[in-house]
Design a protein around this nucleic acid. Sequence first.
DNA 1: GTGGTCTAGACCACC
DNA 2: GTGGTCTAGACCACG
Lengths: 130, 130, 130, 130
Amino acid sequence: MKFNIDVDNGVPIFEQLIRQIKFAIAEGVLVPGEMIPSTRELAKQLAINPNTVQRAFTELQGEQVLEVLRGRGLAVTAGAKKRCVSARQQLIVEQLERVIAEGLRSGLEPDNLRNLFERQLNKSARQQGE
Amino acid sequence: MKFNIDVDNGVPIFEQLIRQIKFAIAEGVLVPGEMIPSTRELAKQLAINPNTVQRAFTELQGEQVLEVLRGRGLAVTAGAKKRCVSARQQLIVEQLERVIAEGLRSGLEPDNLRNLFERQLNKSARQQGE
Amino acid sequence: MKFNIDVDNGVPIFEQLIRQIKFAIAEGVLVPGEMIPSTRELAKQLAINPNTVQRAFTELQGEQVLEVLRGRGLAVTAGAKKRCVSARQQLIVEQLERVIAEGLRSGLEPDNLRNLFERQLNKSARQQGE
Amino acid sequence: MKFNIDVDNGVPIFEQLIRQIKFAIAEGVLVPGEMIPSTRELAKQLAINPNTVQRAFTELQGEQVLEVLRGRGLAVTAGAKKRCVSARQQLIVEQLERVIAEGLRSGLEPDNLRNLFERQLNKSARQQGE
DNA sequence: GTGGTCTAGACCACC
DNA sequence: GTGGTCTAGACCACG
């Protein structure tokens, strides 16, 4: 399990961690029931402050993605995968909506947008397939 | 020239102002050579802090969208329109690319994405047309 | 607006703050739209660390009880009162449920519990009324 | 003698053990003078850490509910039953008092509380009876 | 060993 | 001035 933290890209570190953990769960890289690394260990590995990791973990517990097994550590909850997958797809729909609205407002015709979309989709799908 | 500022939507006010000025230029509402209102006047009109307006103007000068005409004020530069139009569309293409890539990575099939896209496009186009 | 923090009663300080703010809103002491003291000021006033206050505020934002008015401070949201009142009553029902269950498990008869309940209710109602 | 330990319900395991031992004494399942299982045996039986059992025993000795009979083990003290029964009911009264006071403070009428109480009591009594 | 909480002090973006 | 984020280091409860 490898996480990539970019310290200075504007997105808060704890947010990056949250996203990547959710992503890993959605992808099946982390499976329900699995223990995740301890606060201190992950902090050392990512070269960030334990408190920052702690904050990410706290939020993930609040969203019932992780749960404490006291004295043992944190584990992925049973319902985590479903939650992460659906949250993610909803997020994509919202982003799509925003981009389209902005495109239309900026004077692009629906057909223009469709063309841009298809071009990008083909390009990305090809890269993905490689 | 009317700008809409939403004080509490997360996007910094100076950013909103920058975008809307660029938008107005891209649309032809503001044409090269045209003077724009003074910092103080715009601030009063939008009921925001003059510092905030100033900051937007400073950035727009840095991007050579606005230029100072000494003693007279700020004006839209000659090359502003081209810059704004292309910047805008490029931004949309980038966003589109990002959301498509994320959708594919999160397990959506190209056809799923296409459907989502069409649905949103229709919805947004209808709203736009109203 | 006075909050009472008891540093060593087991309940985390940030939790005490959260409860008391929600309580104040539920009571109508803090009304929607009202600004609450700044992080630093409240921290100084309560003689606790600004980070601890910050944490409470962050959680209250997450629960949509407070909202940022950027550069100006935090305000009670429009829907805060309803949320706080209902959250509170739900909490009371849960506590009641727990106490009753424990009483029954510990061998008290329903009538015993009813008597205890009535006695306490009368006592508390009298105090309240004073 | 069977104890139920729920590792992940927030209540510390040693606390659960303490409560259940007191409960068993209050109920007469464990009688004064009776020996209780050794730390190791109980730990193995409940699949928990011996340290945790030890901690519960230490506290119960401090409350004079258990006493060491040197060379033989731990036994229920003579005065244990009385202590456990009264402690338990007192605890329930206190909890009842707290929840009633909070209910009144949060704007519920005595009759509201009575209704909530009766509903919960019936529900719990039914479950208990099953 | 684990996570949970707190303090102290710093830097940033925004108004 | 405001809140948001991060670091560093401490103490606690639990197992």
